[in-house]
């Protein structure tokens, strides 16, 4: 029961009439920045080109975060990439939407038990829509964008407001992973950390056989 809490809160922000009119334009013209972190990026060319033609909904790729409304996390996120994704997301201008692509941003996917890949994206950034599947086909992608358009119109896709409101919560989570100071399991004691050993090695001296064992 308690486990589901993190994904379902704070999606109902009220909007006024003017915001509703603006949302109509926002949903009809979504420019996306797709962050090719993983395998999901390969599903986007078929979605964009002749057969499925994303542009009929007014969606198109954009070159920089400044111009984009929609950030696609296409695939797994390693810790190192997470840092860049956060920076890209923060460079984007409000209103902005974040879509997690495939199962990896949801719960880690097939990489759930590996050491560099984070498991839940929504702990670090507010995800407006997640597409399950490994990988989602273009039909699923278009379907989810359809749902996202509805949510934007209804004023439910307010991840950017959530991010502003609970910035300290997100920032704390980000810091826990990115600026880790201690070892998670057991600290690594480098046998070559001490200077004399290192200098002896670099000078070409042989290590004593007793120490090697």
């Amino acid at each position: 029961m308690k486990k589901n809490v993190y994904m379902t809160n704070l999606r109902d922000e009220r909007q006024n009439a003017w915001e509703g009119i603006l949302n109509y334009f926002r949903k009809r013209s979504m420019w996306m920045l797709y962050y090719c972190t993983g395998c999901g990026a390969v599903e986007l060319p078929p979605t964009m080109t002749t057969r499925f033609d994303m542009e009929r909904f007014g969606m198109g790729p954009m070159a920089t975060p400044r111009q984009a409304d929609l950030l696609l996390i296409t695939g797994y996120l390693s810790v190192k990439t997470l840092k860049r994704v956060i920076r890209s997301y923060e460079q984007m201008q409000d209103p902005k939407y974040l879509v997690g692509f495939g199962s990896c941003p949801i719960n880690g996917g097939i990489y759930w038990d590996t050491y560099p890949v984070i498991n839940h994206l929504e702990m670090f950034l507010p995800v407006d829509m997640s597409i399950a599947g490994c990988m989602p086909r273009p039909q699923a992608i278009l379907d989810s964008f359809e749902k996202l358009r509805d949510e934007i119109q209804e004023g439910k896709a307010v991840g950017y407001k959530r991010y502003e409101k609970h910035y300290d919560w997100y920032k704390a989570n980000q810091d826990k992973v990115l600026n880790r100071e201690d070892a998670v399991l057991q600290p690594w004691e480098d046998p070559f950390a001490d200077k004399p050993t290192l200098e002896a090695l670099q000078a070409g001296e042989k290590m004593e056989e007793g120490e090697d064992k």
Binding site: L22, F25, R26, R28, S29, G58, R66, D69, Q93, D94, P95
Partner: peptide, 12 residues
């Protein structure tokens, strides 16, 4: 639509 949307966004 694009222009209206662009003007409805915040900018830097």
């Amino acid at each position: 639509l694009d222009v209206f949307k662009a003007f409805s966004k915040s900018s830097i």
